[in-house]
Design a protein around this nucleic acid. Structure first.
Lengths: 354, 354
DNA sequence: TTGAAAGCGCTAACAA
DNA sequence: TTGTTAGCGCTTTCAA
């Protein structure tokens, strides 16, 4: 029993031809009761399972949705994937997660190609706008939806956060607290999301009559280490900011660490606001004020759309925007006096987190 | 160019037979220089990529390692997967992540089967000991390694944490701080890990001459919600514990929340220690004391072993143990007085987290 | 140096 | 109701 049994073996035992066995097993077409019984018994005895690879090579459905990502490490990505997975299973599809780093890299080309053949549809999560694979996909008739993408237009359905508007809301929250020197911690440029968030940041400053200060925009990657490094750089300025808007929650964590390790307090000395609202943000210290993304709705729509396409339906290649919501916790507070160079007064850590 | 081009098309353009084209493209066997040149040009022109599905159906390598998991949601799992991914790529393999919930569920059977055919090797992360698929794998000659599994013996290589010993160390830390009423927050029974940790918990108590109190062992799942619920139950006891050992970090977070929302302090009123040391544990409040697992080494060994098997080597079907290390942060402190029913004195929150 | 035949496991289309 | 033929895209004999 070490090797998988094949249809022809089942057929031989049942004393029929392979195609008859195939029919019986799939429950398609005419098969006499007696033959069916014999076949099913033989199949059970041999522990037969159809070879989906072979089926798929013929062009049949696999009921699999490929989720292509560029970075296993990210926590937001983890949340997005989880939401997608839940949604897909609810619709009878399973998820195959593949980390390509870059879909058009020659080393992955074959695999990417194979997986797109294997899967009924594809979800590209946070794809790199510079990735040539996007163009390939436009041309293929492969059902495909982009998620968390806000870069150059692509002729495919795109689920995008309202990055610009959300960022603007975040900065407006800071402005309302009296902050004037507000820094922006930028992420990577890959998906275009960071650039949009930066635009929103500038929108808010402009509307408040504040000139953007180039030295207050730093960053480089959507992770903790980058947030930490960027915050350190900001804290070393002659006139450090009194508030920081991080392009995502993970960067915010890093910034908070950097502030703490300088002996300063959040939000007493510096306020920090993030973006995404991953579940952990209510558990870090201090609980993070951030912009929440409607993860469940976004995943539902994304999966719904690929499934529709996979089943032959049509989905317009439009950008579908999802609104962000401000979640106020305890990492933001009123602006202190002027420059927050030295540890000033400590503020209200408030009560425990839920 | 919408459909993928096939070898026969390349061959036709180059004016050779498919098999010759195949040879040229794979760089195998004799092909005249002129033919080779024509073929390569045709391939480039058609943007040809070999169909790995077809190749694989003939039994060729895919350079893919399938990682089967039961639960996308878990944070530990996320860390494990990330480590595995890094390690695999370093060895020239890519990872295909599949969430089966239960590998032997009839609904997944076909997919699981196909994926095991598709991949050169399999890594089962935190598999369910009750899963019949484990038996199937024993019989297949499929290269396969279990990771984070500590249940019934299986005739396959298993990477296992020193769950029992690690748990004992955790509880000993609590004992050394003067705690006598120590609770255990159990996880799910699926992988056997929780049961082993519970044994270690009892070992430590026994060695300290303390009788285990059944009412102090509660739990049910390896997540925050379960930790929260379990802690609430403990806090409602007539004589609540002064310290809690959670079967993993996520449960510990939940427990800390429950304690906080009762208006009590950690570790002032109750100490909490976790298990795993996921990166976030140094960022929660208070920074979590926990047992660190040697993630990188474990992943390296796991991947190394499947790869060895995939390449024809042999790996003994042994349990490979990995030692845990106590990481003391700020969620554990000296036991207060007797019963910690009411909020007693607040303790040392110490300085900021790194 | 090249190609024809055969087959991986399965099933649609077309007989019988 | 059952079976034969043919083919998905590729590559390993074996022969030319």
């Amino acid at each position: 029993m070490r090797k998988t049994s094949k249809l022809s073996e089942v057929a031989k035992i049942a004393g029929v031809s392979p195609i008859t066995a195939s029919r019986a097993i799939r429950g398609v077409g005419y098969v006499s009761e007696s033959a069916r019984a014999r076949i099913m018994e033989a199949a059970a005895q041999l522990n037969y399972t159809p070879d989906m690879l072979a089926r798929r090579m013929r062009g049949d459905k696999s009921n699999l949705i490929g989720v292509f990502v560029n970075n296993y490490g990210s926590l937001v990505l983890h949340e997005v994937t989880r939401a997608i997975s839940t949604e897909a299973r609810a619709r009878g599809y399973d998820i195959l997660l593949f980390n390509a780093e870059r879909f058009d890299s020659p080393a992955r080309a074959g695999t990417v190609d194979m997986l797109s053949k294997l899967c009924d549809g594809l979800l590209l999560v946070m794809p790199n706008g510079a990735d040539g694979y996007l163009d390939v996909l436009e041309q293929h008739r492969m059902p495909c939806v982009l998620v968390h993408y806000d870069a150059r237009p692509v002729n495919l359905p795109v689920m995008a956060l309202e990055n610009r508007n959300g960022a603007r809301m975040a900065v407006e929250h800071l402005l309302a607290l009296g902050h004037r020197r507000i820094a922006f911690l930028a992420g990577t440029s890959a998906t275009g999301q960071s650039a949009e968030r930066e635009k929103g940041y500038k929108d808010a400053l402009r509307a408040a009559g504040i000139r953007a200060d180039a030295s207050l925009i730093v960053g480089g990657a959507f992770n903790q280490a980058a947030g930490h490094a960027a915050a350190q750089q900001l804290l070393a300025l002659n006139r450090p900011p009194t508030a920081i808007f991080a392009a995502n929650d993970e960067m915010a964590y890093g910034a908070i660490d950097a502030i703490h390790s300088r002996g300063m307090k959040v939000p007493g000395d510096i306020s920090v606001i993030g973006f995404d609202d991953i579940p952990l943000s209510s558990h870090v210290f201090p609980p993070l004020t951030t912009m929440r993304q409607p993860l469940a709705e976004l995943a539902a729509r994304a999966v719904g759309d690929v499934v529709t396409m996979a089943q032959g339906g049509t989905v317009p290649p439009e950008r579908v925007p999802f609104a962000m919501e401000l979640v106020i916790r305890q990492s933001t507070g009123p602006a202190a006096t002027a420059g927050a160079g030295q540890a000033a007064d400590s503020a209200e850590p408030a009560d425990g987190n839920v």
